[in-house]
């Protein structure tokens, strides 16, 4: 296969609907241009805006941070360390990769550590009744991302959600007909409540995980290849698997699914005034951030678990079983951590 731009030997391919195979130099040149075009198309932010990029240590968030710096934006990083799989080093490896890239880019990396802030780790939430641990993880991350963006005076919060993530989320929302979430999914979520909810954008929304992986590898961006030890069987991954099967049968399915939603998503969206009113109702009494309840979701989790620990409640058999399953996953994960592209 020849590079579509220079005729050299192609080593990387864009997703099928783009009909694009490129050599390494042309690919690492094309990728940031494609993101720049996405930023322009969705009017994500302006050249002078201060960006805070939420970096997990995975390929997508680190790649988007590197690209935004290449494009000349003022982009600092934020890493939320939830002490995931502390005994196997998942979170510490993730943070290490973020720090490595920050040093390479010469940019500030802000780190929020759940253990240092609240003496809690995400494993404490493994046996929450009717609440998957991934949901608690998401609540903490969204809270800290917004809180730090407000603290640091960032204009825009950037996340590394790619088209596969967006399609899997969309599929899940459609399968549940969750009109609330269907009304909120977009490449750009505008700032609300006088800047207390910072504008959020997803510059990778039209790029697949494969495209981002190729870029990360070709640019030598170190990233954690292992999956979170607690995420085995997560709903999102089942959705991704189903979409991959459809995409294989009919290339371009994901792009059509996502773009079709974006084109028609207005039908799910309540009037702007209602959104503003809903967001502005309350401020959390603990952290002061906008909240739909007296105490926000993140602070409720902290309160619940802190009280539970203070009462000395022991964990049950369910938790031990899940910990055992996590340990099995961790063994495989450790091997991947040791052999990933970013490994020394």
């Amino acid at each position: 296969m020849k590079c579509k731009i220079c005729g050299g030997k192609a080593v990387a391919e864009a997703s099928p609907e783009k009909c694009l195979a490129l050599c390494a130099p042309c690919y690492v040149d094309w990728f940031p241009r494609f993101i720049a075009e996405t930023i322009r198309k969705f009017r994500m932010f302006a050249a002078q805006d201060r960006l805070l990029v939420a970096v997990s240590g995975g390929k997508d968030s680190l790649a988007v941070w590197e690209v935004l710096c290449r494009l000349g934006y003022a982009a600092e990083g934020l890493h939320v360390n939830l002490s995931i799989g502390a005994e196997h080093g998942y979170s510490s490896a993730s943070q290490r990769h973020c720090e490595e890239l920050a040093a390479r880019l010469g940019k500030a990396l802000h780190v929020v550590d759940l253990k240092q802030r609240h003496q809690l780790e995400i494993g404490d939430f493994l046996d929450m009744k009717d609440r998957p641990v991934c949901s608690c993880c998401g609540t903490f991350k969204r809270h800290f991302m917004n809180a730090v963006a407000v603290e640091r005076g960032a204009d825009v919060l950037v996340t590394g959600h790619n088209m596969d993530d967006e399609c899997a989320t969309l599929l899940g929302n459609v399968l549940r007909w969750d009109l609330h979430y269907l009304s909120r999914q977009a490449p750009v979520l505008p700032a609300r409540t006088a800047g207390q909810l910072v504008r959020k954008v997803k510059p990778l929304c039209h790029l697949t995980e494969r495209e981002t992986t190729q870029y990360a590898i070709l640019r030598g961006i170190p990233y954690v290849r292992a999956e979170c030890p607690f995420s085995t069987g997560a709903t999102t991954i089942s959705g991704k698997h189903a979409l991959d099967l459809l995409e294989n049968r009919s290339p371009g399915t994901k792009r059509r699914f996502y773009d079709g939603y974006l084109k028609n998503s207005a039908v799910f969206r309540p009037p702007e005034a209602e959104l503003e009113q809903a967001a502005a109702e309350l401020s959390c009494v603990d952290c002061g951030m906008p909240s739909a309840h007296e105490v926000c979701g993140s602070c409720r989790l902290v309160r619940f678990m802190t009280e539970r620990k203070a009462q000395g409640q022991t964990t049950g058999g369910r938790r031990r079983r899940r910990r055992a399953a996590a340990a099995v996953a961790a063994a495989a994960m450790q091997a991947a951590l040791d052999t990933g592209p970013g490994a020394p």
């Binding site: 390929k59 995980e209 290849r225 999956e227 979170c228 995420s231 069987g233 997560a234 991954i237």
Partner: peptide, 9 residues
């Protein structure tokens, strides 16, 4: 190398 993130089946 697997490229799918977000967990495993």
């Amino acid at each position: 190398i697997r490229v799918i993130s977000g967990g495993r089946l």
